[in-house]
Design a protein around this nucleic acid. Structure first.
Length: 586
RNA sequence: GCGCCCGUAGCUCAGCUGGAUAGAGCACCUGGCUUCGAACCAGGUGGCCGGGGGUUCGAAUCCCUCCGGGCGCACCA
């Protein structure tokens, strides 16, 4: 509908005589916006005001000329000039009704479009380290990433959802040794658990699993294990030095192959837990990408070779550096340390290289806000490897603070004192969790109040929106109980009977849905969709309270039920993009 | 010190690629169920949009600056 108005205005602009507007200032794009106030019509344009300066004309005079030159359209009932020179468009009722007919015909497809033109976008999100279960912070990443991916898909992009598994590096070894120590406890050994070890209950479960599979095969006496180790942190030592020594000891006692087996068992267990958790949350991935595979198949070396060849890498102090300062970074970054060990950044460069090789048109990274310092250097890597700068995009998700009854819950994977995503889902339900997570802008810190999320009040938009959907289902049940059936053909023919202001308001809102979806996708802003759905539910409830649906006049009845079904369709489609269910009863 | 995010009604937040009188929910106050689900609706109270400058026909929105809060600035991952 908006595009129609834009077309009309573009034609009028082209027809404007030269004495009113010089030819050389006409490439100004035509802008049309939704009005906030119904007094200003349905759509408004500020074109005349924007032209006024270049044309050295009074904006109202320009507006009058434009309005005179507007081609007539059956969809436009009235055009007015208001204020400083706004051109306000009032749509005809026919135009409203035609949109509802279109909506009902499109059904589940309504709102989808093809502006993405089949371009491919890879969305990488969550990518939590497989060192423990997902917590509530990861939940926000999951909900946000999944919703953005759905939105992009809805507007015609080919979307690939990816989870990057950080299964390489020292963290994994700490995980393995933690699991082994829990296993030893299960075997009956007694000792002090390392300060830097993972101490969550899930580690003990892995130890238990190890015991069930291996018996006492991997058992060693505590005295042997801890003999001559440097002091741990509580004894005044360095916890990192201590745990590294402990890892080395474990390797030498049980052998490297066994150690790797323990590591793999731990990672596999945690990863399958994460996968199941996300699946239950309605978040799925097309690809689970292993960081370790980058090292195993030589990708890291190839990426670094590519950088060297392009002249963006150099050796200094025995280390290999990436010259990221060439692309705006504040300092160059080490890829291979003096001791020959590759840094985490080397993996990230290789991973970007790999993504480029896979040929995506656009790369969307969703990161925690604490990673913002990483953006510049990684973009530098992408450009240095020949990727187009504008294909690289990072969206940061701010932190989640969990509140329970006004008290802030602490979250730390290492200490094991955290509320998991699974706990949260169990307590508030998937629907409330998904909606709460994306209700606020990703740039905004989120205070997630679990009591609020479970409250069945208007605080919680989940119920408000779902209730509107269920009410329509209830209407249809009621219709059946009265021995009536909905004649959709008659309803379509009778749409002209929808003339009440609440009905027209609802239709207007429904008509905006496709544009809202495009906007949400373009801005990666699922929270805008939540607000839209809340407003839509409000319009529906208002109309519901104001007018009877099941009335004597069959034409009016079927038209009104058609409108109700249209609202139900848009709510279902919208909630679907957010991963929230649309129940028939509540 | 440098960088990113945030500061809008008592509370939680929309609005930010400049547009008309700044919006929603909660809270508070008034009304509305013998009638399709009151998990609802109608109405009301409540704002120097953190402060100050600038850009212009027009600024919550853009620029500068200051103040306040969060986060980050490794040959860690």
């Amino acid at each position: 509908m908006k595009t129609l108005i834009e077309k009309l205005l573009t034609k009028a602009l082209a027809a404007l005589p030269e004495d009113l507007l010089p030819m050389n200032v006409r490439d100004l794009g035509v802008e049309v916006e939704n009005t906030r106030d119904a007094q200003h019509g349905d759509f408004a344009s500020n074109l005349a005001m924007r032209l006024a300066k270049a044309a050295r004309q009074n904006p109202r005079k320009l507006a009058e000329a434009l309005v005179r030159l507007l081609p007539p359209s059956p969809s436009v009932a009235k055009v007015e000039i208001a204020g400083a020179g706004f051109i306000n468009f009032f749509l005809s009722k026919d135009a409203y009704h035609a949109e509802i007919a279109k909506l009902l015909q499109a059904g589940r497809q309504y709102g989808r479009s093809s502006v993405g033109a089949g371009k491919s976008v890879q969305v990488e999100f969550v990518s939590a380290n497989p060192t423990g279960p997902l917590h509530v912070g990861h939940g926000r990443h999951a909900a946000f990433g999944a919703s953005v991916a759905n939105l992009l898909e809805a507007v015609g992009y080919r979307v690939e959802r990816e989870y990057y598994i950080n299964d390489a590096g020292r963290q994994m070894e700490i995980l393995a040794v933690s699991a082994w120590l829990r296993y030893l406890e299960r075997c009956g050994e007694r000792f002090a658990f390392p300060a830097n070890g993972y101490r969550g209950d899930y580690i003990a479960a892995i130890g238990e699993q190890l015991f069930a599979a291996q018996g006492v095969k991997l058992q060693h006496a505590a005295a042997d294990i801890f003999k001559d180790l440097p002091p741990d942190e509580p004894q005044g030592g360095d916890k990192d030095v201590y745990i590294d020594a402990l890892i080395a000891r474990a390797r030498s006692l049980i052998g490297d192959p066994e150690f790797r087996r323990v590591l793999n068992l731990a990672v596999a267990g945690i990863l399958s837990d994460i996968r199941e958790d996300l699946q239950e949350f309605g978040v799925t991935f097309d690809c689970w990408f292993s960081e370790r595979s980058l090292g195993d198949n030589g990708s890291i070396d190839r990426a670094m070779d590519a950088l060297k060849k392009a002249g963006h890498a150099y050796v200094k102090d025995g280390a290999l550096w990436f010259k990221s300062t060439d692309y705006g970074d504040e300092k160059d970054r080490v890829m291979v340390r003096e001791n020959g060990v590759k840094t985490y950044f080397a993996s990230d460069i290789a991973y970007v290289f790999n993504k480029l090789e896979r040929g995506f048109d656009h790369l969307l990274y969703i990161w925690g806000a604490d990673h913002h310092g990483y953006i510049t250097r990684l973009r530098a890597g992408l450009i240095a490897l020949g990727g187009p700068a504008d294909s690289f995009e990072v969206r940061l998700v701010q932190f989640v603070s969990l509140f329970r009854g006004g008290e802030k819950a602490q979250m730390s994977t290492r200490s094991g004192e955290f509320v998991t995503l699974r706990d949260l889902r169990k307590e508030v339900g998937n629907d409330a969790a998904r909606l709460f997570y994306v209700m606020r802008s990703n740039d905004q810190h989120l205070d997630f109040d679990m009591e609020l999320a479970t409250a069945r009040t208007n605080d919680n938009p989940v119920y408000y929106i779902q209730y509107a959907h269920a009410r329509v289902a209830s209407l249809m049940r009621q219709l059946q109980e009265r021995g009536l059936a909905h004649d959709s053909e008659l309803g379509l023919r009778s749409l002209c009977k929808l003339v009440e202001p609440q009905e027209l308001q609802l239709i207007k809102r429904l008509s905006a849905f496709p544009e809202i979806i495009r906007q949400c996708a373009a801005q990666r802003a699922p929270h805008t969709l939540v607000h839209y759905l809340r407003d839509l539910a409000n319009d529906f409830h208002t109309n519901y309270s104001a007018h009877q649906f099941i009335v004597e006049d069959a034409g009016l009845r079927d038209a009104r039920l058609g409108l109700a079904l249209a609202a139900q369709t848009v709510i279902r489609n919208g909630l679907g993009l957010l991963g929230v269910s649309a129940p028939e009863t509540m």
